[in-house]
Write a protein that binds this DNA or RNA. Sequence first.
DNA 1: ATCCAGGAACTGT
DNA 2: ACAGTTCATGGA
Length: 325
Amino acid sequence: MYHQVKSQENIICNHTKEFQSGVNQENEKPGSIFLSTPREFNFYECLAFLDRSRQERLHSVENRKVRKLIQTDDELVLIELSNPRTDHIRIEYLNGVPPTSTQLVVQNYIGEWFDLDKDLTPFYEMASRDNLLRKLVRRHYGLRILKIHDLFQALCWAILGQQINLAFAYTLYRRFIESYGENFVYRDQTYWLFPTPAKIAGLSVNDLMRHQLTGRKSEYIIEIAKCIEQGDLSKERLLALNDFERAGQALLKIRGIGPWTANYVMMRCLGDPCAFPIEDIGLHNAIKQQLNVKEKPSIEEIRKMSAGWTNWQAYATFYLYRSLL
DNA sequence: ATCCAGGAACTGT
DNA sequence: ACAGTTCATGGA
């Protein structure tokens, strides 16, 4: 095989140019492709979040690397990401290097997954002056919001997690994926894709209730699947509103999506830095822990504490989530 | 056993 | 508009 990869051609930079330089060729091996990362980025902080549940099926973290199966329009690719040097992520294609066009899709996907385009310096500046965030941003420096690319997946994850503890939410999520998602076996390990709206739209409420979803959640998810199937709801359409405020309002009109779910999805999927799921119990617990107090803060108290977080509420929330691991 | 969990819809006033 | 109730089950 003479698929000699020259490093210069494979440094993909979908964010600020200044981060492009500095890739050393020593560690490179043919077939590896590198994605340069900003200075304010820590791969292992992100991996810690990705590795928070043993029931996770949509990626696997092992040996300081993460693997994920990605379905593009015409390819199924299994990637493994690692971080041999701090200024880039290494991408390895385990089931064969796909065509260049697919590689570009994958690189964009990873850029979105790890939120590489965001300049965190203003957030850090704000956080260094905030009593609640100061320690957190130092301890977890370089953490990014781990995004959920697929809107249907983000909505299902949020709805499944409504009003139940996180461990049980993961159980429901795993059952949902293993029951209705496609899988791909590679070297004795199974990798999963999230179920498609088409698949879920064809189910009955009873089908989902068999996996211990409540009747309500089953209805919400099936209805949303149908909505997406018919093209009435899509990430593109929400982003095309060009206004997170309006995107949030559109989400709130959907049955099963309240303020918490709308904000959660805006944070994890649509990329709204102002999204703030202020009703979130996990957020409340994280704040309680940070303040070292006995009682969880009230919504009003959180409003006051977060008064200075303008334009960065989602990042503050995510760092607080991270503190709970 | 008891309480709570990364909420939201529904019902009655 | 607002407060109280129901959904429903697992985890600690």
